[in-house]
Each structure stands twice: as C-alpha cells, then as structure tokens.
C-alpha cells in the first residue's frame, strides 16, 4: 500500500511535526533559521522557523514560543516526544541565518548570526547533535526535510540547490 505523500508547510515563527511519508517545508528563510529535529528510526521530524534568538527580547504579553530559539527548540522537542520520537536519538539539521542587507541598526544587522548562535547554544544545552548545517551567507533559502531519507533539501535563488 502506498500512502499519499503530502508536504506540510511551516510559516514564519511557527513549527510542526510530520511522519514519513510526509515531508515538511518552510519557504524564504532570510535571517531566520530553520531547525529540523528528527528521529531517524521512527521516521518522525519536526521543523521550527526561528525569527529571534531569545524569548527575553519579547515585549508582548502573549508569548509565541515558536518565534524564539530558546523556547521554540524545547517546544519542538516536546512535540516530537508526544508523537513517539525518542529524545535521546534526536538529531538536528539547521539552515538559514543569512545577512540579507548590509546595514541597519547594529542589533538588527547581526540578527542572522545571532539566531544561528542561539540555536546552537540551545541544541547543545539539550544535547542534540547537529549533523548538518548550511548557515550564514547572503542568500535566502527554502528548505524541505524528508523523514524517510533524513535528507534536508536546500534551495536558493543565487547559490544553487543542495542536500545535507
């Protein structure tokens, strides 16, 4: 029996979880970072589209956990556990964190690298190894992860397409 394959789309400052044969995708990452956590054996994957490094930067009463690296990665790990992934066998692939423009206020201009750094710190804290990474540069990225093959496909406008 062949199951129908759908591609689940994740918006900005959002996250979701899929099981094979479904794939998961987010479009137009600039300074944002796409974080994929997956369980290779159970073939479950989650994708988070991080916009800001730290939830302490939030000035709103309502906290959207998926917007920040620190709160989002933890929430994604919990969502994967709830779907049957084993926390000890989770691995990560990350992409994004580009610098799209060459000016701005000092804080904003470095938002891409700061996001990447915050994502790495949080993954380290949770002992989740990063097995693939395509970060930095000055190109936007659209990424799609297939839990069946554990491959992350990365498409750019100016710098080609690749799998990590």
């Amino acid at each position: 029996m062949t199951a129908l394959k759908t591609v689940v789309r994740v918006g900005i400052a959002d996250m979701n979880v899929v099981k094979s044969p479904d794939c998961i995708r987010t479009s137009g990452l600039g300074s944002c970072v796409g974080v994929v956590l997956y369980d290779e054996v159970r073939k479950i994957a989650g994708l988070l589209h991080v916009m800001l490094p730290d939830s302490k930067l939030g000035k709103s009463d309502q906290l959207n956990v998926a917007k920040f690296a620190d709160t989002g990665i933890y929430a994604l790990m919990e969502a994967l556990k709830a779907e049957g992934a084993r926390p000890m066998s989770l691995k990560a692939k990350i992409a994004g964190g580009a610098q799209m423009f060459q000016f701005g206020s000092n804080d904003t201009i470095r938002i891409g690298p700061r996001n990447v750094e915050a994502v790495k710190n949080e993954l380290k804290r949770l002992s989740i190894p990063i097995v693939g990474e395509d970060t930095g540069g000055s190109s936007g990225r659209t990424i799609e992860f297939d839990p069946e093959t554990s491959k992350l496909n990365i498409r750019t406008v100016n710098a080609g397409t690749k799998d990590i």
């Binding site: 600039g30 799209m100 423009f101 190109s139 936007g140």
Partner: peptide
C-alpha cells in the same frame, strides 16, 4: 531574492 527572505528582515 525570495520575498520571505527579504521582507522578514
């Protein structure tokens, strides 16, 4: 580049 990458900034 892509709209998402540009406008999100």
């Amino acid at each position: 580049d892509m709209v998402g990458a540009i406008v999100s900034f």
